[in-house]
Design a protein around this nucleic acid. Structure first.
Lengths: 180, 180
DNA sequence: GTCTATAGTGGGATAGAC
DNA sequence: GTCTATCCCACTATAGAC
């Protein structure tokens, strides 16, 4: 099965996989369960998708598009000559909101190695673009991304104690991280 | 098998498990492989360890102790009235160095849920203590921890492009994150 | 405390007929 | 493009003898 031949059936498969992933978590996303939801037999899936890795790459691409849309949209609502610090906080809020709304998709797209060879060209960079624009510098963008990802994944993993004021920690970070 | 009954044999099992984990990664740490390394049969392991979860908790405890030692030691070498900013950078270096030296152990201890019920009381707090001391505040400590964990896990996962100047990103973050 | 034997579960993937 | 049949893999964990 070649990589990028589009097909309506395949889109249905990816949509179903996404539903399973988002609602039941990664351990329940098996080729068998996916086939069952589509009312077909598992071996038939392999006529549409090379293997599970390809399927996951298609989901990761959806995640990157979704996150990218959220981040680009967050910046659009802002005055173009406004405070960069404020823009960073806005971006951070959009990032966290998207991740908490799609925790399994967020994890899939941000944990472990990224199967770059299976992703559309330029998608990764497009997703990250708003952050680079606000920080004005690749090093600061990476620092800000690391902070946001760290906060997000630690929250998703239940690493902060119940008493922790997570909003305040985000605030402490975005207020002090340097921007352009 | 009760939780905290110490035993020499169990220490050997944990040590062997750690070797496998560190050298061959988590997917190769199976009860079978562990038994094989110890020249015994897998079922015999269950006389010493309740199950794999308990074994992993013992490894996580080792990781937290190791990281904690590295962080406490890093602060000891510093003048007690020196710059907090400088202390934060020192701590960050120690954190990163430890993680890169023990990537699989680092992942085990920082990814996913922490099995707090199976860990020694106070260990988690002791590991984090140096960071709280330097930032002087729980919110800032969490922000700094999120930054450090984000940088580390993104580096371990190969998320930064080869062209990225990871040292510079660390520097950008630690220089701007606020301290006491 | 070690063994043998094995249960029980689940997964990804392929061959070949229709 | 779908099916049936099946393979092959791997793992955790238990029962019961010694």
């Amino acid at each position: 099965m070649s990589l990028t031949v589009p097909s309506a059936r395949r889109d249905e498969i990816v949509a179903a996989a996404r539903q399973i992933l988002e609602k039941e978590g990664p351990s329940n996303l098996t080729m068998r369960a996916l086939a069952e939801r589509l009312e077909m037999r598992a071996p038939s899936l392999y006529k549409h998708v090379a293997d599970k890795d390809e399927l996951e790459a298609l989901l990761i691409a959806e995640a990157l598009r979704g996150m990218g849309e959220a981040l680009h949209a967050a910046l659009e609502g802002l005055p173009s000559r406004g405070s960069k610090k404020r823009a960073l906080a806005t971006l951070a809020r959009a990032y966290r909101t998207w991740a908490l709304a799609h925790p399994h998709l967020y994890r899939l797209a941000t944990e472990g190695e990224l199967p770059r060879a299976l992703l559309p060209d330029g998608l990764e960079a497009w997703t990250a673009e708003p952050l680079v624009r606000v920080t004005g510098d690749a090093d600061r963008a990476r620092a800000a991304w690391a902070f946001a990802h760290g906060m997000t994944i630690l929250e998703l993993d239940g690493r902060f104690p119940p008493s922790a004021d997570i909003d305040a920690a985000w605030e402490a970070g975005t207020a002090s991280l340097s921007v352009a």
